[in-house]
């Protein structure tokens, strides 16, 4: 088993006016390849900050973050963009599909940024949409899809560059419980295939379905395995 992500005494402080907010205050953990980890915590716990750091959208104030052995600390914007493109697959609560593009074009965007030629992009994206059960919805725009379908498109998009980790931020939060359940099943299937999934949620029942979990509160890990 290899370590996909490791955090070593990571701190993220924000300066607001004269106050320093310690959003994350010394966090260390490893995520092992093939795990299905829930990051739980109430709002304001530092959960989102942690997610942003795992997603390489942000850099820590101090401490070391490694993804596939590469240290993020001294990377510039371009390198972080490259990491996001190759190693991270984002799934958001509100889907965050590009509204002007069809489902197929949405799934093709990360492949486009990677420089994959059009024909190959299309083949890959089509295969992924088939995989998430949307083979008949490829030309539809996000506005023509239901919530569950949108999230499936988002998951297909997250998978497109075959990332090291799928980072899902409350992916069922905007869905009714039945659809949410289906999406959860899809994640479980992906994990069965060996995908590493990090699942950020405040919902304990959902968290319990993940195979391991970390709870954070006030910027620190209070419970983990």
């Amino acid at each position: 088993m290899c370590i996909v992500i490791s955090f070593e005494d990571v701190r993220r402080y924000y300066v607001v006016g004269e106050n320093v907010i310690k959003a994350l205050d010394g966090i260390s953990f490893d995520i092992i390849s093939g795990s299905f980890l829930a990051i739980m915590g109430p709002s304001g716990s530092g959960k989102s900050t942690l997610m942003n750091l795992i997603g390489c959208l942000d850099t820590p104030t101090s401490g070391v973050i490694r993804i596939d052995g590469e240290t993020l600390g001294d990377m510039g914007e371009d390198e972080l963009a490259l990491i996001r493109n190759r190693k991270i697959g984002f799934v958001f609560q509100n889907f965050n599909l590009l509204p002007k593009l069809s489902a197929l074009d949405n799934v093709m965007v990360p492949l486009l940024y990677r420089g994959i030629p059009l024909k190959e992009r299309k083949e890959k994206a089509e295969a992924l949409l088939e995989k998430v059960g949307l083979g008949d919805r490829m030309k539809h725009r996000p506005t023509e899809l239901s919530g569950g379908q949108k999230q499936r498109v988002a998951i297909a998009r997250a998978l497109s560059n075959n990332p090291s980790i799928i980072l899902a931020d409350e992916p069922t939060g905007a869905l009714d419980s039945k659809t949410g359940d289906q999406i959860m099943e899809l994640f479980e299937n992906l994990n069965d295939e060996g995908r590493t999934i990090v699942f950020v949620t405040h919902d304990r029942t959902l968290g319990a379905r993940c195979r391991s979990s970390i709870s954070i509160r006030d910027g620190r890990i209070v419970d983990g395995c």
């Binding site: 959208l57 490259l82 190759r86 984002f90 590009l98 990360p110 940024y113």
Partner: peptide, 8 residues
């Protein structure tokens, strides 16, 4: 969104 997907 584009930046999250890896746009430089």
């Amino acid at each position: 969104i584009r930046k999250a997907l890896g746009a430089t």
